[in-house]
Amino acid sequence: MSQKVKIIECPRDAMQGIKTFIPTDAKVVYLQSLLKCGFDTIDIGSFVSPKAIPQMVDTAEVLSKLDFSETNSKFSVIVANVRGAQDAVVHEQVDYLGFPFSISENFQMRNTHKTIAQSVKTLDEILNIADAANKKVITYISMGFGNPYGDPWNVDVVGEWTEKLAAMGVKILSLSDTIGSSTPENIEYLFSNLIPKYPDVEFGAHLHTTPTKWMEKVDAAYTSGCRRFDGAIQGFGGCPMAKDELTGNMPTENMLSYFTTNKVDSGVNWMVFEAAFNKATELFSTYHD
Results as ranks from 00 to 15, higher is better:
residue 37 C to N: 10
residue 38 G to V: 00
residue 38 G to F: 05
residue 39 F to Q: 13
residue 39 F to D: 03
residue 41 T to A: 12
residue 43 D to M: 03
residue 43 D to P: 07
residue 43 D to I: 01
residue 46 S to K: 03
residue 47 F to Q: 05
residue 47 F to H: 05
residue 48 V to L: 01
residue 50 P to F: 02
residue 53 I to N: 03
residue 53 I to S: 01
residue 53 I to V: 14
residue 54 P to L: 04
residue 54 P to M: 02
residue 54 P to Q: 00
residue 54 P to D: 00
residue 55 Q to K: 01
residue 55 Q to E: 05
residue 55 Q to V: 02
residue 56 M to I: 04
residue 57 V to E: 03
residue 58 D to P: 00
residue 58 D to S: 08
residue 58 D to G: 00
residue 58 D to F: 04
residue 62 V to W: 02
residue 63 L to S: 02
residue 64 S to D: 10
residue 66 L to S: 07
residue 67 D to C: 03
residue 68 F to Y: 10
residue 68 F to E: 04
residue 68 F to K: 01
residue 69 S to V: 09
residue 72 N to S: 14
residue 74 K to A: 05
residue 75 F to T: 10
residue 76 S to N: 08
residue 77 V to F: 09
residue 77 V to T: 12
residue 77 V to Q: 03
residue 77 V to N: 08
residue 77 V to D: 05
residue 78 I to K: 11
residue 79 V to L: 02
residue 80 A to W: 06
residue 83 R to E: 15
residue 83 R to Y: 14
residue 84 G to S: 09
residue 84 G to L: 04
residue 85 A to V: 14
residue 85 A to E: 04
residue 86 Q to T: 13
residue 87 D to N: 10
residue 88 A to Y: 10
residue 88 A to W: 10
residue 88 A to V: 07
residue 90 V to S: 14
residue 90 V to P: 04
residue 93 Q to R: 13
residue 93 Q to N: 12
residue 94 V to G: 03
residue 96 Y to E: 01
residue 97 L to T: 09
residue 97 L to V: 08
residue 97 L to H: 05
residue 100 P to E: 11
residue 100 P to D: 10
residue 101 F to G: 06
residue 102 S to F: 05
residue 104 S to T: 11
residue 105 E to A: 13
residue 105 E to C: 09
residue 106 N to T: 14
residue 106 N to A: 13
residue 108 Q to K: 13
residue 109 M to F: 15
residue 110 R to Y: 12
residue 110 R to H: 09
residue 111 N to G: 01
residue 112 T to R: 14
residue 115 T to M: 06
residue 116 I to G: 15
residue 116 I to N: 13
residue 117 A to N: 14
residue 118 Q to D: 15
residue 119 S to Q: 07
residue 119 S to L: 05
residue 120 V to M: 11
residue 122 T to Q: 12
residue 122 T to E: 11
residue 123 L to I: 10
residue 124 D to R: 10
residue 126 I to M: 01
residue 127 L to D: 01
residue 129 I to Y: 04
residue 129 I to C: 01
residue 129 I to N: 04
residue 129 I to H: 04
residue 130 A to G: 06
residue 130 A to T: 03
residue 130 A to R: 00
residue 130 A to H: 01
residue 130 A to C: 08
residue 131 D to N: 14
